[in-house]
Amino acid sequence: MILFYRLSGLAALGTGLVGIFVPLLPTIPFILLAAFCFARSHPLWEARLLRSRFGPAIIDWRETGAISRKGKVAVLSVFGLSGTAGYLSLEGWRALLPVLACAVGAIWILTRPTAVSRPPSD
Protein backbone atom coordinates (compact mmCIF):
# COMPACT_ATOMS: atom_id res chain seq x y z
CA MET A 1 0.00 0.00 0.00
CA ILE A 2 2.91 2.33 0.72
CA LEU A 3 4.14 1.89 -2.84
CA PHE A 4 0.67 2.76 -4.17
CA TYR A 5 0.58 6.00 -2.11
CA ARG A 6 4.13 6.90 -3.06
CA LEU A 7 3.52 6.40 -6.80
CA SER A 8 0.18 8.21 -6.59
CA GLY A 9 1.87 11.09 -4.76
CA LEU A 10 4.56 11.36 -7.40
CA ALA A 11 1.98 11.28 -10.20
CA ALA A 12 -0.13 13.94 -8.46
CA LEU A 13 2.92 16.12 -7.79
CA GLY A 14 4.05 15.82 -11.41
CA THR A 15 0.60 16.70 -12.70
CA GLY A 16 0.36 19.63 -10.29
CA LEU A 17 3.72 20.97 -11.42
CA VAL A 18 2.67 20.70 -15.06
CA GLY A 19 -0.47 22.63 -14.08
CA ILE A 20 1.69 25.63 -13.20
CA PHE A 21 2.46 26.05 -16.89
CA VAL A 22 -0.63 24.63 -18.60
CA PRO A 23 -3.76 26.79 -18.53
CA LEU A 24 -6.93 25.15 -17.18
CA LEU A 25 -4.98 22.30 -15.52
CA PRO A 26 -5.37 22.87 -11.77
CA THR A 27 -2.25 22.90 -9.63
CA ILE A 28 -3.36 23.06 -6.00
CA PRO A 29 -5.79 20.09 -6.02
CA PHE A 30 -2.99 17.85 -7.31
CA ILE A 31 -0.52 19.24 -4.76
CA LEU A 32 -3.09 18.56 -2.00
CA LEU A 33 -3.45 15.01 -3.28
CA ALA A 34 0.33 14.59 -3.34
CA ALA A 35 0.58 15.80 0.27
CA PHE A 36 -2.16 13.36 1.27
CA CYS A 37 -0.35 10.47 -0.40
CA PHE A 38 3.07 11.41 0.95
CA ALA A 39 1.65 11.70 4.48
CA ARG A 40 0.87 7.99 4.19
CA SER A 41 4.01 6.87 2.38
CA HIS A 42 6.94 9.26 2.72
CA PRO A 43 6.84 11.80 5.60
CA LEU A 44 10.06 13.44 4.39
CA TRP A 45 8.50 14.34 1.04
CA GLU A 46 5.37 15.55 2.82
CA ALA A 47 7.54 17.80 5.02
CA ARG A 48 9.25 19.22 1.92
CA LEU A 49 5.87 20.04 0.40
CA LEU A 50 4.79 21.73 3.63
CA ARG A 51 7.93 23.89 3.54
CA SER A 52 7.43 24.79 -0.13
CA ARG A 53 5.42 27.69 -1.51
CA PHE A 54 2.41 25.34 -1.47
CA GLY A 55 2.71 24.76 2.28
CA PRO A 56 0.24 27.45 3.42
CA ALA A 57 -2.44 26.19 1.01
CA ILE A 58 -1.95 22.60 2.21
CA ILE A 59 -2.11 23.63 5.87
CA ASP A 60 -5.19 25.84 5.34
CA TRP A 61 -6.98 23.00 3.57
CA ARG A 62 -6.08 20.43 6.22
CA GLU A 63 -7.01 22.63 9.16
CA THR A 64 -10.20 24.30 7.96
CA GLY A 65 -10.95 23.30 4.37
CA ALA A 66 -10.17 26.91 3.44
CA ILE A 67 -9.14 28.33 0.07
CA SER A 68 -7.30 31.64 -0.28
CA ARG A 69 -9.13 34.63 -1.72
CA LYS A 70 -6.61 34.74 -4.58
CA GLY A 71 -7.24 31.05 -5.27
CA LYS A 72 -11.00 31.54 -5.29
CA VAL A 73 -10.76 34.45 -7.72
CA ALA A 74 -8.50 32.43 -10.04
CA VAL A 75 -10.73 29.35 -10.00
CA LEU A 76 -13.95 31.32 -10.47
CA SER A 77 -12.37 33.24 -13.38
CA VAL A 78 -11.38 30.00 -15.09
CA PHE A 79 -14.83 28.54 -14.45
CA GLY A 80 -16.39 31.64 -16.02
CA LEU A 81 -14.19 31.43 -19.10
CA SER A 82 -14.65 27.66 -19.42
CA GLY A 83 -18.43 27.84 -19.05
CA THR A 84 -18.66 30.64 -21.57
CA ALA A 85 -16.39 28.86 -24.07
CA GLY A 86 -18.39 25.65 -23.68
CA TYR A 87 -21.68 27.49 -24.12
CA LEU A 88 -20.46 29.22 -27.28
CA SER A 89 -18.91 26.04 -28.70
CA LEU A 90 -21.91 23.73 -28.35
CA GLU A 91 -25.45 23.81 -29.64
CA GLY A 92 -28.83 23.04 -28.17
CA TRP A 93 -29.19 21.59 -24.68
CA ARG A 94 -25.55 20.45 -24.72
CA ALA A 95 -24.48 24.10 -24.50
CA LEU A 96 -25.87 24.17 -20.96
CA LEU A 97 -23.75 21.25 -19.70
CA PRO A 98 -20.45 23.16 -19.29
CA VAL A 99 -22.33 26.08 -17.77
CA LEU A 100 -24.01 23.76 -15.28
CA ALA A 101 -20.76 21.98 -14.44
CA CYS A 102 -18.96 25.29 -13.88
CA ALA A 103 -21.86 26.62 -11.80
CA VAL A 104 -21.78 23.56 -9.53
CA GLY A 105 -18.01 23.93 -9.14
CA ALA A 106 -18.34 27.65 -8.42
CA ILE A 107 -20.98 27.05 -5.78
CA TRP A 108 -18.75 24.48 -4.09
CA ILE A 109 -15.75 26.87 -4.14
CA LEU A 110 -17.87 29.70 -2.73
CA THR A 111 -19.08 27.53 0.14
CA ARG A 112 -15.51 26.83 1.31
CA PRO A 113 -14.12 29.14 3.99
CA THR A 114 -11.68 31.83 2.87
CA ALA A 115 -8.17 31.31 4.24
CA VAL A 116 -6.73 34.00 6.45
CA SER A 117 -3.38 35.31 5.25
CA ARG A 118 -0.48 33.73 7.08
CA PRO A 119 2.80 35.51 7.70
CA PRO A 120 5.72 33.82 5.96
CA SER A 121 7.39 31.23 8.19
CA ASP A 122 11.14 31.36 8.69
Score class of each variant (00 low, 15 high):
Leu7Thr: 06
Leu7Ser: 08
Leu7His: 03
Ser8Leu: 12
Ser8Met: 10
Gly9Met: 06
Gly9Thr: 01
Gly9Lys: 02
Leu10Ile: 13
Ala11Ser: 12
Ala11Glu: 00
Ala11Val: 10
Ala12Arg: 01
Leu13Lys: 03
Thr15Met: 08
Gly16Asp: 03
Gly16Asn: 04
Leu17Asn: 09
Val18Leu: 15
Gly19Glu: 09
Ile20Cys: 12
Val22Cys: 12
Val22Ile: 15
Leu24Pro: 01
Pro26His: 04
Ile28Asp: 01
Pro29Arg: 04
Pro29Glu: 01
Phe30His: 05
Phe30Ser: 05
Phe30Met: 11
Leu32Ala: 02
Leu32Cys: 06
Leu33Gly: 00
Ala34Gln: 08
Ala35Asp: 12
Cys37Gly: 05
Cys37Leu: 08
Ala39Pro: 03
Arg40Trp: 03
Ser41Val: 09
Pro43Tyr: 06
Glu46Ile: 07
Ala47Ile: 12
Ala47Thr: 14
Ala47Glu: 15
Arg48Pro: 07
Leu49Val: 05
Leu49Ala: 08
Leu50Trp: 11
Arg51Asn: 15
Ser52Gly: 12
Arg53Pro: 01
Arg53Tyr: 10
Arg53Asp: 04
Gly55Lys: 14
Pro56Asn: 12
Pro56Ala: 12
Pro56Met: 11
Ala57Leu: 10
Trp61His: 03
Trp61Asn: 02
Arg62Met: 03
Arg62Val: 05
Arg62Thr: 03
Thr64His: 14
Gly65Thr: 00
Ala66Tyr: 05
Ala66Pro: 05
Ala66Cys: 07
Ile67Thr: 06
Ile67Gln: 07
Ser68Ala: 10
Ser68Tyr: 02
Gly71Thr: 05
Lys72Met: 08
Val73Cys: 08
Val73Arg: 13
Ala74Cys: 07
Ala74Met: 12
Val75Asp: 04
Val75Arg: 02
Val75Lys: 06
Ser77Glu: 03
Ser77His: 00
Val78Met: 13
Val78Gly: 05
Phe79Val: 00
Leu81Glu: 00
Leu81Phe: 11
Leu81Val: 13
Ser82Ile: 10
Gly83Asp: 02
Thr84Met: 15
Thr84Pro: 00
Gly86Lys: 09
Gly86Ser: 07
Gly86Ile: 11
